[in-house]
Design a protein around this nucleic acid. Structure first.
Lengths: 145, 145
DNA sequence: TATTGTTATACTCTATAACTATA
DNA sequence: TATAGTTATAGAGTATAACAATA
């Protein structure tokens, strides 16, 4: 249970985090903006899925998901297969080209973080990842009413 | 010095953080979007300053800063005073109305975080704020060439 | 009637470039 | 000539609402 001053400090850091996110965005391939990268990463992580499931994992409206998916499919990085169980649905699946794109994304982000976090210990990187994961869970647990 | 797998996990958490930021944004007053809140917060934190200094603290282009400042000034939350040392410059200063708005922002964010982070210890909140602050510093230290 | 997904519209945030006023 | 700030334009991300197809 923390106090108001601590929460305000945390909010300041949340706000300042935008600069980190923007720099990550700048090193991405021009054809693959952040939304596309998120789609590829989640499909890699969780396997084939439907639009609605992807929207849930992205934590954005399905209309937004639809846009991102259309962009990614247009580049040939995923394919949209018919769902035999429900003709309204489509199953999303990474293509070999999509896996190649994921490799490129990984190379770029690893290269940037290797430089920027050169002075961070293994434990610190893990701790930040763990706390941010817990933060996301704490917010996802109680969706806005 | 961390490995590629750890960096990829960290990048996933960076991406997922967007959901937290969006929920924070949803509870803001409609007249005061994120950019405006950042301007008010930084002026409160660092005192009166010029546009260029604010742009540096926001870590965005001055054209973006100019937009946010115009919005905030239009609501009467800050005033733009002439700089006696340089007629091209303007000194930004919070008004009483601006301080009132800051109080409202603080109430809303504290209320949200009190609920969402109810199970977090004081130490964990402090640790997350500290690590995110260090992350920002690690990125700011080497601006993009 | 309800659900899956798409599209149209609108709003926020951002960067680049052109512009002005002053240094 | 260089700098402080503004504005116009363009692009990415998002949400809401209206819509089509299917359950």
């Amino acid at each position: 249970m923390a106090g108001q001053a601590q929460y305000e400090e945390l909010v300041r850091q949340f706000s300042a985090f935008g600069a980190v996110k923007r720099e990550m965005g700048r090193i991405m391939p021009p054809e693959c903006p952040g939304g596309s990268a998120a789609v590829l990463t989640l499909l890699d992580r969780h396997g084939d899925m439907r639009m609605s499931r992807l929207a849930e994992l992205l934590a954005v409206d399905m209309s937004v998901t639809s846009r991102h998916v259309a962009h990614v499919a247009g580049r040939g990085w995923i394919e949209r297969l018919p769902d035999p169980a429900d003709k309204r649905s489509r199953i999303l699946r990474l293509t070999p080209s999509g896996y190649a794109q994921l490799g490129e994304l990984s190379r770029r982000t690893t290269e940037l973080l290797t430089h920027r976090l050169a002075h961070w210990s293994d434990e610190e990187v893990g701790q930040l990842a763990r706390l941010m994961g817990r933060l996301r869970e704490s917010f996802a647990a109680q969706p806005t009413p």
